[in-house]
Design a protein around this nucleic acid. Sequence first.
DNA 1: CTCTGTGAACGACTTCACAGCA
DNA 2: TGCTGTGAAGTCGTTCACAGAG
Lengths: 212, 212
Amino acid sequence: MKRQPAPDRVVRRLSLYLRQLEHLAERGIDKVSSSQLAGSLQVSAAQVRKDLAHFGQFGRPGVGYRVRPLIDELRRILGTDKTWNVIVVGAGNLGSALLQYKGFLKRGFRFVAAFDVARGKIGRHIGNVRVRHMGELARIVRRHRVKLAILAVPADAAQRVAERLCKAGIKGILNFAPATLAAPPDVAVGPIDLAASLEQMSFAVASGTSTR
Amino acid sequence: MKRQPAPDRVVRRLSLYLRQLEHLAERGIDKVSSSQLAGSLQVSAAQVRKDLAHFGQFGRPGVGYRVRPLIDELRRILGTDKTWNVIVVGAGNLGSALLQYKGFLKRGFRFVAAFDVARGKIGRHIGNVRVRHMGELARIVRRHRVKLAILAVPADAAQRVAERLCKAGIKGILNFAPATLAAPPDVAVGPIDLAASLEQMSFAVASGTSTR
DNA sequence: CTCTGTGAACGACTTCACAGCA
DNA sequence: TGCTGTGAAGTCGTTCACAGAG
């Protein structure tokens, strides 16, 4: 029985398992073995069991895992059993698209506001929220108890804006700007580098390192 | 002296180094040590040296690395010394935003077309390209020798579309759909799961596992 | 003296393989 | 018999530390 800090890798796969379990639940399936769960996800059955074992004992030998209860457990572990209020900073193309992306709401994230500095954008509505001036940041964050932010500003503004977010009380930043952010140790930063991701593909194709 | 297959992790960091080196070059700096390069990027100096050593010997003891030549080497390694033609499949909010994202062009990727199935979207222009019907896929891919695709369709269409892409000759797919794709071994798939990324943040905040 | 390239030590993650429960 | 949970073994990636080049 262990309860160590839980590697990033493991948490990422938990999201994967959760998604798959939700598919199974939709199809009315109510129990699943580690190997069935692993099957379509390109991980091993042992991996699934080990990952889940980081957090407790959820299965029954000879049977497998019950889908519904496991979904609930995973949501609890990931923190998405409650809905999180999220803001988007930077209402350009990418920020706007993210504000309208339906996938977040289904997984327990709700946008409460967007922020920008451009005159022309402020006051407009994107998705279900209003674009506000950065000056309102602290107030909105406080009022809605926002802990998570999506950062979609130009690279040269990213660090500066990140610092304002931290000061306002944000505890997790999903960073789409092509910049490496420095943040206090109690703030999590998740980098999403689009150009780098395409470069991975480019490398794989150019060097013939695909799955072989 | 090694020349092993080069782990994913290493390639991802190469992109990071490249970005940083380009910043340095812009500022007119022409040499850099592994520890300077590592500094702002939150990796160790030894890591930088080991990563580069996977591909050759680029530095000079006592001096460091020359910025310009190293940029050229990294581009060559990543395959971005030449421009890649890229298509986007799925011209919804996300697909549209990606088509207009300037960051790709700067890094050697050029969009040549977008594809969708919705009547209303076909024929429109987004960014610099025209939205075409999926029926034109094979022809455009062939004509422009497209090897890389960005997939931004709904989850339930993702696998089906991915198969068409593979059949058309695409060799790398950057997948924004929340689905795990199966592809032949000579096709690279890079998953970008937005909801899962936010779940990472949620987990980190909920469990107090930020950097501590 | 400075800084790279690299074997060797270390640590983290994954797979193996099996005891034990249903 | 079927399948989980888990130590043990194995693999992979990172850090250490230093010989040697400039």
